[in-house]
């Protein structure tokens, strides 16, 4: 048993192969025959926030993607650039992309991950959410300094994201997230560059598969003047996520709890 050949073949190759089969190949076999969603398929459901970006930052958008229209090609381009920036800055070392369904120990049925970030769908992360061209490799993450982002679509507005990227303390006073000023072209953080637009697109895309967007909603809509008095004042309901992210069962976090 202590011979070179025996160790080489049995321990080295044999046990490694065994583990690879049980822990790698068998889980893989579960997704056998399920097609990987391609970029083109992804681009059939463009979140309206992308169109909003095209409308709000026409020059920056044209400079970045060579068109003023929020086309499918521009969307794919933006997603890829955004994901690349997300990896380059190691956002995934501070943010996870998986909502775990953990057994109830907080009085809800699904565990705190789902209560926090999936209170609308009550759906923990599913394998098929990751089975697409944007997950080579996956970005599950292993450390959660900031909130989970797999369902970040629509949680904040584009402008919130841009302000937050420029300086997180503007939107979240106690944040430890670093500022990312190089995602902007000017000195005041008003004009995002290609990476900035891409990153916001990416964040608005994550989780948008739970919503169907009409194609090019914005192009056909007439621009109506907004009259604030049309809307009733917004009262944040209890038990629902607040703007800042977390659901707060104790009702509102307006006043500083410290």
């Amino acid at each position: 048993m202590e011979r070179f050949n025996f160790i080489f073949v049995v321990a080295g190759i044999g046990f490694f192969a065994l583990a690879f089969v049980i822990m790698g190949a068998l889980p893989l076999a579960q997704y056998q025959g399920v097609d990987v969603v391609s970029m083109d398929q992804i681009a059939t459901n463009i979140p309206y926030q992308f169109e909003e970006l095209a409308r709000d930052y026409p020059e920056a958008f044209e400079k970045a993607f060579g068109t003023t229209e929020p086309t499918a090609a521009a969307f794919e381009d933006a997603l890829e650039i955004g994901r690349k920036a997300y990896i380059a800055e190691a956002c995934w070392h501070c943010h996870t992309q998986q909502i775990r369904r953990i057994d109830p120990n907080d009085g809800t049925e699904v565990g705190h991950d789902v209560s926090r970030w999936a209170s609308d769908t009550h759906q923990e992360s599913q394998a098929d959410e990751y089975h697409n061209a944007m997950n080579y490799p996956h970005l599950f993450g292993t450390r959660r300094v900031g909130p989970d982002l797999i369902r970040s679509s629509g949680r904040h507005s584009n402008d919130w994201h841009l302000a937050h990227l420029w300086n997180p303390r503007q939107t979240s006073p106690y944040s430890v997230m670093p500022p990312y000023t190089w995602f902007f072209d000017d000195a005041d953080g008003m004009i995002p560059n290609k990476r900035g637009l891409g990153l916001v697109t990416y964040l608005q895309w994550l989780g948008c598969w739970y919503t169907q967007f009409a194609p090019s909603e914005y192009k056909d809509l007439p621009q109506l003047p907004v009259d604030e008095s049309w809307y009733p004042p917004y009262v944040p309901p209890k038990n629902e996520p607040t703007e800042e992210g977390g659901g707060d069962p104790y009702g509102g976090s307006e006043e500083d709890p410290y």
């Binding site: 822990m23 790698g24 893989l28 579960q30 997704y31 990751y130 997950n135 080579y136 490799p137 996956h138």
Partner: peptide, 19 residues
């Protein structure tokens, strides 16, 4: 493998092994 062939969850299992 996770970079080129195996996306998503299956790739995650491999990355877990790798780490």
């Amino acid at each position: 493998l996770p970079q080129t062939l195996v996306p998503g969850t299956g790739g995650a299992a491999l990355v877990g092994l790798y780490i």
